[in-house]
Design a protein around this nucleic acid. Sequence first.
DNA 1: CCTTGACTTGGAGTTAACTCCAGGTGATAC
DNA 2: GTATCACCTGGAGTTAACTCCAAGTCAAGG
Lengths: 132, 132
Amino acid sequence: MKIAEVSEKFGISSDTLRYYERIGLIWPVNRTASGIRDYSDLDLRRVDFIKCMRSAGLPVEVLIDYVALVQQGDETIQARKEILKEQRALLAARMQEMQKTLDILDHKIEVYENAVLKKEKEIMQEQALEIA
Amino acid sequence: MKIAEVSEKFGISSDTLRYYERIGLIWPVNRTASGIRDYSDLDLRRVDFIKCMRSAGLPVEVLIDYVALVQQGDETIQARKEILKEQRALLAARMQEMQKTLDILDHKIEVYENAVLKKEKEIMQEQALEIA
DNA sequence: CCTTGACTTGGAGTTAACTCCAGGTGATAC
DNA sequence: GTATCACCTGGAGTTAACTCCAAGTCAAGG
């Protein structure tokens, strides 16, 4: 699969895909004889993983470290697990913050809703007075 | 309340508080005769609101627009509600993305956990062989 | 065969959101 | 009263994460 197809498939620009590879966020992708990237199924799964992690806000730097550990083999399993656990905790904390904000937004929207309804009612009564 | 105290209370730097005021993210704060900011209770509630919205990732630019509408009075209630509803939807979508990532992280952590346990077991068996 | 278009690289530019700095003023501690 | 400290402003600098650009190479269509 060529870079433009991968870009299309995941909604990530070709520039970003090359950037990710350059900084070590995804493994080096196989090339055709003329040097053009040819993404394998494994490459696609790696892109998908990084896309998922990035979409949740995990920092690029942390993910680079993680990928480097994966490349170093089985000896780093413990270290990888620790990274994921830490990022999992941070993510859960962010989500809790966001839930708090969501609740406040819902409350404010409801208050505004009531304010709008009240105003409409007043206007209707004014119109009723005009007709009377 | 002086800026350093507000900074302490909310965990927002004085620089950021001044920056927020400068760009219109929070209302102008009352000053003492010599020009020093003196945050009122209302100011504190505004800071708290902005802190909450920012912590959930609502863009500064959107919040500036929202605050400007609040300052324009009751005529803008409908427009304000629309902004909040849109941001609420975006926030919920981000949270869903993050939940997906959280699930994947939990799965991976579990896989790593099992890998670590398996390795420990192998080592124990080796030790048992040595002793035997 | 030649043009068009997708690909390549290294490096520069952009964006959002702060964060820091220099230079200056007023208030407080000793 | 003087030294230190928090505060002020306008503007410059930083950081993360892309995003764009110039200049060059290769492959396929007409």
